[in-house]
């Protein structure tokens, strides 16, 4: 009954849920949600320090980077050069080479710019980074990214922060079937059932931020997501019953009085 652990770039993770650290009321709430979620990895951003407030709260004081894996992102980068520069700083700040590449385009939909994403991924891999890549749900691009050496393929389920749930199950499933690196749905999850659907499709994990941070009770939603990911994974491994067009009684018809 034992499941295989999630393995990304040779390292094992007990949880298949990755959570973001943006949009929370404060870092304490974020830390509480992390504890409730059971996640081993959090995404983080890299920004200038506020020179006028050296005593501002620091993320590292609430979420210990020696206990939780920090996955630095490239949010706000629009070119490969920006992404490499940001992640070099992140590597120096934390010493990790596992990174989340996201090269976005239009603020209206925050869809990944796949041409620039491919170019950026190549630059980062050449610098020794292990790249988990946010990408469109296009199996052709997903294949190119895997062939290039990305360590995880992370197609969007729906636009970032939209909470719409997975919009294209067919494409996500095609990507799952063709990939030999982990496939992690990144973005679009709105509630627990969305996370379960992703896992039931055979995804290796789910990455979410807003679904937890903007829930009325983020800590409770974090716990819900933990269960949803486990439930979806278990259902996938169990193998669902076939769908039928007509009813099929659960109680035997033989022996009726």
């Amino acid at each position: 009954m034992q499941d295989k652990p999630l393995v990304i770039a040779g390292r094992e993770y007990a949880s298949r849920l990755i959570i973001g650290t943006g949009k929370y009321k404060d870092y304490q709430q974020n830390a509480d949600a992390l504890a409730a979620s059971g996640a081993d990895i959090v995404t983080v951003a890299m920004r200038r320090v506020n020179l006028s407030d050296p005593n501002e709260p620091m993320l590292v004081d609430f979420i210990d980077p020696t206990k939780t894996v920090y996955l630095p992102n490239t949010a706000g980068c629009f070119t490969g050069e920006d992404a490499v520069r940001t992640l070099r700083l992140a590597r120096e700040a934390g010493g990790w080479d596992l990174v989340k590449l996201e090269v976005l385009s239009d603020p209206k939909h925050l869809y990944p710019d796949m041409v620039e994403t491919l170019r950026s991924a190549k630059m980062l891999i050449d610098e020794g980074f292990k790249v988990m890549v946010y990408c469109s749900d296009d199996p052709v691009f997903a294949r190119k990214l895997e062939d290039m050496g990305c360590v995880a393929i992370m197609p969007l389920g729906a636009p970032i922060g939209s909470g719409l749930g997975l919009q294209n199950l067919v494409n996500i499933r095609l990507i799952v079937e063709q990939s030999s690196v982990p496939v992690i749905v990144d973005a679009g999850v709105g509630t627990a059932s969305d996370a379960s659907i992703a896992m039931e499709l055979g995804c290796d994990g789910v990455l979410m931020n807003t679904a937890i941070a903007e829930a009325k009770d983020p800590v409770r939603m974090a716990r819900a997501m933990k269960h949803a990911v486990i439930a979806g994974r278990e259902a996938y491994l169990a193998g669902r019953m076939p769908k039928k067009r007509y009813a099929d009684p659960s109680s035997p018809l033989a022996g009726l009085i």
Binding site: T43, V44, M46, R47, N73, G161
Partner: peptide, 9 residues
């Protein structure tokens, strides 16, 4: 440039 980690998705 002096940078640090902050919350992000």
């Amino acid at each position: 440039e002096i940078v640090r980690f902050i919350g992000g998705g």
